[in-house]
Amino acid sequence: MRRVPLFLTGAAAIFFLAACQGPQRILDPRSPSAARIAELWWVMFGLAAAVTIVVLVILSFAVHRGQQRQRGVDPGRVNGATLVWGGGVIVPVMVIFYLVVYTVRVGADVYSPPDTNPDHLVIEVVGHKFWWEVRYPQHRITTANEIYIPAGQTVRVLVTSPDVIHSFWVPQLHGKIDMIPGRINNIWLRADEPGLFRGQCAEYCGSGHALMAFWVEAMPEDKFAAWVDRRRAPAPEPPHPEIARGREVFLQAGCHECHATRGAPLPPRLGQVGPDLSDFGRRRTIAAGTLPNNRGNLGGWILDPQRIKPGSRMPGTALAGDDLQALLTYLQSLR
């Protein structure tokens, strides 16, 4: 029986420390907004701990008085009305009132525009079932499932959705913001220093919800500028016959009907259903954070995406072995 409290203590410690580890650790903020949210968490945790301690003290006091009565000792009388009104009404109301006021102040600080600078970098993020479309309207760049921002700069992110409600959340950089069909919401991101931060859809949106993640990479300003220049540059011709053959397979197999790539000629209104693949070769993951981006996983994804991510709109593609290998080479060359 003595092992039970020890087990419960360990389980509670694991529960409370779960937010401290992993790629989405909310208690390791890397931006002013995330720091304010973490501060709110610690305030709520501190008050909850204080209330718990007070309750345990009162409980211990009551148990002690009961033991005294069992031994025939008169513990004296306690004014029950004072305990009920003080501990059951006045103190809880004061704690809740303080938390409400403090939470509203934090929310106002976090979600208000940081300044009136009209030259902020603007990024448009569209949540689809179940992937992320990312657009840079000032640079005419479109990508997917990865967001690149300059470190040390405030970036305005406009979010929406064409299908169901999603929620955009990068715990180390900011709080959550809903992506509602027919409405544009905005959030301000700022990374204090270069780094890689994982984001996640935080609103249940269907069978693929748990497999709808993305990455935010904060770069030094010169590297971000170089990335913009590289993406805006015309796509080079395939430098190798196998890559050229892979591009032909991409077109012949109908991949271009959903996916756009730089350098692949597309008829009007095609290539707008699925993620833009123009820089697919440099992405870290496949299918919005579902699998590491390597040749084996990519081949399995192309052949049978529903086995890997049920609910995805991408159909399976039956390709001969040589055609599949050429297509993999082409996709991995896209940077």
Rank of each mutant, 00 (worst) to 15 (best):
E39I: 02
T290H: 01
V155L: 07
P194T: 08
A244R: 00
A50M: 08
V89S: 04
E248I: 03
L173M: 06
E257Q: 15
W42E: 12
P310M: 12
R262H: 10
I187S: 10
G263V: 11
L27C: 13
W41I: 09
S278I: 08
R283P: 02
W131P: 02
V63C: 07
Q200C: 03
G299D: 00
S333L: 04
R65M: 06
P150L: 13
L331I: 10
G175P: 05
I187C: 08
R230Y: 03
P267S: 15
A38Q: 05
I308E: 01
L59S: 12
S312C: 14
G80N: 04
G127H: 07
D28T: 02
G246C: 04
A287R: 03
D74K: 12
A108F: 11
P171A: 11
Y98A: 15
T160R: 08
V104L: 13
Y136I: 10
F130N: 00
W41H: 12
V73K: 03
F214D: 01
V4Q: 04
G152C: 03
M1W: 12
A11K: 14
T154E: 12
R198A: 11
T82H: 14
N185P: 11
R140S: 15
I123L: 14
I37G: 02
Q68R: 13
Q68M: 11
A326I: 00
P310I: 13
T82R: 12
Y98E: 14
F168Q: 06
G22E: 02
K309F: 00
V43H: 02
I187E: 11
I141P: 12
A12P: 00
S333V: 10
D279Y: 02
D322R: 11
G271H: 03
F61T: 15
L121I: 09
S31E: 07
T82V: 15
T116D: 09
A226L: 13
V78Y: 12
Q24L: 03
L303C: 08
N294K: 04
Q172K: 11
I184S: 15
S33Q: 13
G300R: 07
Y111L: 07
